[in-house]
Amino acid sequence: MSDRPPTSGLSEAELSDRLRSLAARSATPAPAAGALVRGRAVRRRRARRALLTTAGLAGAAAVFLAFGTPRSTAPRPATTSVPTPAPVQQVLIDLDAHTLTVQGRSFAISAPEPHCPIGERAVTVTAKYPVVNLAPNDIGVGRAGPRNWAVTFTDRANQQRLLLFELTPADLPDVGEDHILGAVGVAPASGRAVYDAVQVGAQVRIAGGQQSEKPLSNAACIDRQPVKGGS
């Protein structure tokens, strides 16, 4: 021990308090350098994750604003289209003007004789035959035999009858007149063109003519007799 007196004027109690305080400070270990480095790395990773999360949320918000609600990827049900039906062909037979009009073309015809009218104003074409053979009538009047390029319809009695056919060159004077026994005769050399133009199922309107006080029977009017399968 030194014989020198204490340099400070501290009392024994104050000196004791200071010594205890220094002992408590020396008991708290200083953080190691490695721990400080690891702590800084953890804080940097947490800050980076927070930054990325914020950026991702901002990007998703921008996409939503630009494109709206995401569309569903579920397959849509298949739709079936219904085809539009083709328009029905319209044909006009004018017995007063002696013309037949189809597809914008007009053809000269011979109309029915007043005592052998067609008897219909609107008919539907039911069949076509290159040749139809007709039997003579009961009174021996009129030309029997074949009718070329024949177009038929079904009347109210459910009988298939001639609507039109091609006249022969010998019948040329009848074009423009009313001499056919119950049908329409198309001018010679035009029958095939009319036959090809008029479609089965066509709706035919018959205008004019057909005035008779005493129409004859179908048996007397050769061109009004029933047609069976183009016989």
Rank of each mutant, 00 (worst) to 15 (best):
L22V: 12
C116T: 07
A62K: 02
G229N: 15
P136D: 07
R156N: 15
S106V: 03
P85N: 10
A62E: 02
T152D: 07
Q211G: 04
R38A: 14
N158D: 15
E14R: 13
T126Q: 02
P146M: 09
E177Y: 02
R20A: 15
L167R: 03
T73M: 11
T152S: 10
D3W: 04
A219K: 11
A108D: 12
A111C: 03
A197F: 06
R44P: 00
I206P: 01
Q211K: 13
E113Q: 08
A33P: 08
G140E: 08
E166Q: 15
D17P: 00
L65V: 14
A135I: 04
P136C: 03
A32H: 08
P136R: 11
P130M: 02
T80E: 12
N133Y: 06
A13S: 12
F67T: 14
A66W: 11
T69C: 03
E14N: 10
A193Y: 00
S16D: 14
G208M: 04
F153R: 00
A150N: 09
R46E: 06
S16Q: 14
R161I: 10
S106D: 03
Q211Y: 05
V37F: 03
A189K: 13
R4K: 12
A78W: 03
L167P: 01
L19C: 01
R192N: 08
V198H: 01
P31L: 11
V204A: 05
